[in-house]
Amino acid sequence: MVIKILFVIFVGLAGGIAVGSGFVAFLAVLGIIPRLTQLTKTMKMIIWYQWAVVAGALIGGMGSLRDPAIFFPSLTLIPLGLAGGIFVGAMAAALTEVLNVFPILAKRIGIEDKIVVLMMAFVFGKIFGSLYQWLYLVGR
């Protein structure tokens, strides 16, 4: 019995370590945090950003595994949604950067100086696609 419990604890811990380190490694490769510190000029606080990620992952893990409820007004969800969207959007942008999407595309069609226009197409496409899914497609 004790061995069973210990084994389950060990497996849980091992799984958690795999997921957690994978998450952090993914964030590190994409380089979102350095980018945000560069924008806000808060390089010195980078250690606190590290703890923000750790705390967020822990709270998110607990929230998704233990079904808590804190009974806040639903308006609280607006900033949360915005924050989540910005995070995912920055991740998507970082991913296109890692994959060299924009440089190759701009060179192919020869609009290297109008790359902003190209990027805005991506941005509006994302907003439109996401709104379309949640407002129309899901409720159909």
């Binding site: 804190i70 959007g89 991740m91 942008a93 996401s130």
Partner: peptide, 28 residues
Amino acid sequence: IITGRVEARPLIFQIPYSIGLGLGMILF
């Protein structure tokens, strides 16, 4: 988790989320 209620289409989260997607990309 936040409101304690069940909602199949939490638009109050989804619309800011969609806008945030574009903002995040611009920010990056």
